[in-house]
């Protein structure tokens, strides 16, 4: 399994972050949540590997307050 990348890996991070915000612009809370859900599924399919996905889930959970 490829290790989950937790070091900086995004070229021009500000641009990517702006893309994310822009995609949600004008959406109400429900539509925004639905978009996120679809996005997670698209990315999960790209990752494919269940162990890697579980590592990503754990990383997201660990960073929460």
């Amino acid at each position: 399994m490829t290790d989950l990348v937790l070091e900086p890996n995004i070229d021009r991070p500000d641009d990517l972050y702006a893309d994310l915000l822009e995609a949600h612009e004008g959406l109400d809370e429900a539509a925004s949540a639905a978009l996120n859900a679809r996005l997670i599924l698209v990315l999960a399919n790209h990752v494919g590997d269940r162990e890697l996905f579980r590592a990503a889930l754990a990383a997201a959970r660990n960073a929460g307050a």
Binding site: A33, I40, L41, V42
Partner: peptide, 19 residues
């Protein structure tokens, strides 16, 4: 929400259909 996301994606992309 995730269920509906899978169904919406399944209309557009084959990857979501096995889900």
């Amino acid at each position: 929400m995730f269920r509906d996301a899978v169904l919406d994606l399944s209309a557009a992309y084959p990857f979501a259909r096995p889900l």
